[in-house]
């Protein structure tokens, strides 16, 4: 049924009206409660048994600075090892070769299935199992000399990280459309070349947010290496408070450094995400 061009009455023109601001009473109330609570917590700490002058003094002490540098060196090196292992293991996991698939699954099972601190202690005490290590006839050395705290921490953290990274990488590889493999094959690429040139660059876009997460976790996990005498920042802080008994002050110093490092990493991750979002309408924008 047609009514021609006439519009029905009773629906006035609202196009000239302004839209009134909404009053967000709930937000004001929540803000007030939180400010009061933060004030109470701040007051408690200000009146508590904390000598803030120690925090200030030790925040930039050379031992602490060396500690945070060692923390970063270890985190970067272990992440590099973890990513290298993770990529290789993820590719093995998706290989048509059943032997490679089982080895990859076994690796992930073993290193995800045991606590990191236990793995660190095992690497550090490897000399108890193998007093001398080396390549028969070529080179050999005492394990206690080779397995320094640095190497033990690198192997423990890096190999453990590889097990987690391989799962992140596998998810990334699976997220790439099967048509991309076929298009790569159709222009004459082999499996590995297709992975390197076509599939991995697209998988990177998907894996960077979880990898950033993993890296932040790893920065903090380096603190576990303090148990095997690796001189990272928590170990340095502990050494100082063993001498001067300012336990809380030095733990706060270490905590502030971790916070600072993690705060710097977040914008770095955004930059990386933008780099790998090339050509995609969504992401990083």
């Amino acid at each position: 049924m047609s009514h021609g061009d006439a519009l029905a009455d009773g629906f006035p023109d609202l196009s000239g009206h302004t839209i009134a601001r909404q009053a967000h009473w709930g937000r004001w109330l929540a803000a007030a409660i939180i400010i009061v609570m933060l004030g109470a917590i701040g007051r408690a700490f200000a009146n508590g048994q904390i000598e803030w002058s120690y925090v200030e003094r030790f925040l930039t002490a050379p031992v602490i600075l060396r500690g945070i540098v060692n923390t970063m060196i270890m985190a970067v090196a272990a992440m590099a090892l973890g990513i290298a292992l993770g990529v290789v293991v993820a590719i093995m996991r998706l290989s048509p070769n059943p032997v490679l698939r089982s080895v990859a699954a076994g690796y992930t099972w073993l290193f995800r299935g045991t606590p990191l601190i236990l793995q660190l202690l095992l690497w550090f005490n490897l000399a108890l199992v193998f007093p001398t290590i080396g390549i028969p006839g070529l080179w050999s050395a005492r394990a206690v000399d080779v397995m320094t705290p640095f190497l033990a921490a690198l192997l423990g953290l890096g190999i453990n990280q590889g097990a987690y990274t391989s799962e992140v990488m596998r998810a990334g590889l699976l997220s790439v459309d099967i048509g991309q493999y076929e298009a790569a094959q159709a222009i004459g690429m082999g499996r590995l070349q297709a992975l390197r040139r076509i599939i991995l660059p697209q998988a990177m876009r998907v894996v960077i947010p979880p990898l950033g997460n993993e890296f932040i976790g790893l920065v903090k996990a380096t603190s576990l290496a303090s148990v095997i005498q690796y001189p990272e920042v928590l170990h340095s802080a502990e050494n100082i408070y063993y001498a001067n008994s300012r336990v809380i002050e030095l733990l706060i110093v270490a905590g502030l450094w971790y916070l600072l490092v993690v705060s710097i990493l977040t914008p770095l991750q955004m930059l990386l995400e933008r780099r790998f979002a090339r050509g995609l309408a969504r992401g990083g924008r």
Partner: peptide
């Protein structure tokens, strides 16, 4: 291909 399968990156 039906779905083009250009390399998006």
């Amino acid at each position: 291909f039906q779905r083009f399968n250009l390399f998006p990156h």
